[in-house]
């Protein structure tokens, strides 16, 4: 503990202390300093007075104002929406035109390109058996591969096409399960990853599902997806492979929310685990989040383990 804290440093920490923004260590350091320093003790009291005084100036907007704001907004949104519907389809596809699916963006952009191209040079559908009916299937065009003009003024185009298909079945059907497992790795849409996990969590007893969830928990870049994977894995928190993954996440995940929920899960389901004690001791040494440190400390005490590694 640093007992040589200067008054000016202590006073900076006191500002943070008043908002609960200090780590356990910092709080201990401040306590030790304030106990021995009259000036900083008075500073702490003055800050408490300031907080109490400033609270009286808080403004709570009236419900009438809130209601008026909501009405303004809904009116404006309705106008924008109506104007958007009145636009030609190519204009609606532009981002400022309103909502459209994130996932559809690449295909839409390609479709715009292809539609513009087709308007100038494609022959009518009637003249091209098996070819695209211009306009009707342009949204399926994913990529134009090459273009071959001919002497009679026509042009031959080779393109990739994306078609929407539907698959209905039970989660245990092999095709459905594989599709859901693939969706847990979708690179574009975190929402899709969360949706697939929501369905798969009912089959977490299957190893392939657990493996997918553990992979998502350890590697997904999106915090919400990782939390979803963690939630789905809860019933199997005692499973050796899951537990190993949880300890890795506890040490490595960059999100304090994920780490917090992970330590809760690990500690609530703990047994006699020397490995867990080692991880918790490591956390006591390097974890910044005060809640996680406190949780580690409590768990270590309950395990009759020392708080530090030697």
């Amino acid at each position: 503990m640093n007992t040589n804290l200067k008054c000016e440093d202590c006073q900076e920490l006191l500002v943070l202390e008043a908002y609960g923004e200090l780590s356990v260590e910092q709080k201990e350091t401040v306590e030790a300093h304030v106990a021995a320093c009259v000036g900083c003790h008075e500073e702490r009291t003055a800050l408490a007075r300031l907080h109490a005084a400033v609270d009286v100036a808080a403004i709570e907007p009236s419900l009438e104002l809130l209601s008026a704001c909501r009405q303004d907004l809904y009116r404006e949104v309705a106008e924008i929406s109506a104007a958007t519907r009145a636009m030609p389809f190519w204009r609606r596809m532009l981002p400022e035109g309103g909502f459209w699916s994130m996932a559809a963006k690449p295909a839409m952009a390609m479709a715009l390109f292809a539609a513009g191209f087709a308007g100038a040079r494609l022959v009518p559908a009637s003249g091209t058996p098996g070819g695209p009916a211009a306009g009707a299937t342009m949204s399926a065009v994913r990529n134009v591969r090459y273009i071959e003009p001919s002497a009679d003024g026509k042009v031959r185009i080779v393109y990739d096409e994306v078609r929407q298909r539907e698959l209905t079945g039970r989660v245990d059907d092999q095709g459905v399960r594989e599709m859901l497992l693939t969706a847990t790795r979708d690179p574009e849409d975190p929402g899709l990853r969360v949706d697939s996990m929501e369905v798969l969590r009912r089959r977490v007893e299957h190893e392939d599902v657990r493996t997918a969830l553990v992979r998502a928990l350890e590697t997904d870049g999106n915090e919400g997806v990782r939390l979803k994977a963690l939630e789905a894995l809860k019933p199997f928190a005692g499973h050796p492979a899951v537990r190993t993954a949880l300890t890795r996440v506890l040490v490595a995940d960059k999100s304090a929310t994920v780490r917090t929920q992970t330590i809760d899960l690990l500690v609530n389901t703990r047994r006699d685990e020397p490995e867990l004690a080692g991880v918790l001791q490591e956390l006591m040494r390097r974890e910044e989040n005060s809640y996680i440190r406190q949780r580690s400390q409590t768990a270590l005490k309950a395990m009759n383990a020392s708080l530090e590694t030697f």
């Binding site: 924008i80 981002p95 459209w100 699916s101 994130m102 963006k105 975190p190 999106n222």
Partner: peptide
């Protein structure tokens, strides 16, 4: 107007 660009 920009919700489409929110990528979580």
């Amino acid at each position: 107007r920009n919700l489409h660009s929110f990528r979580f």
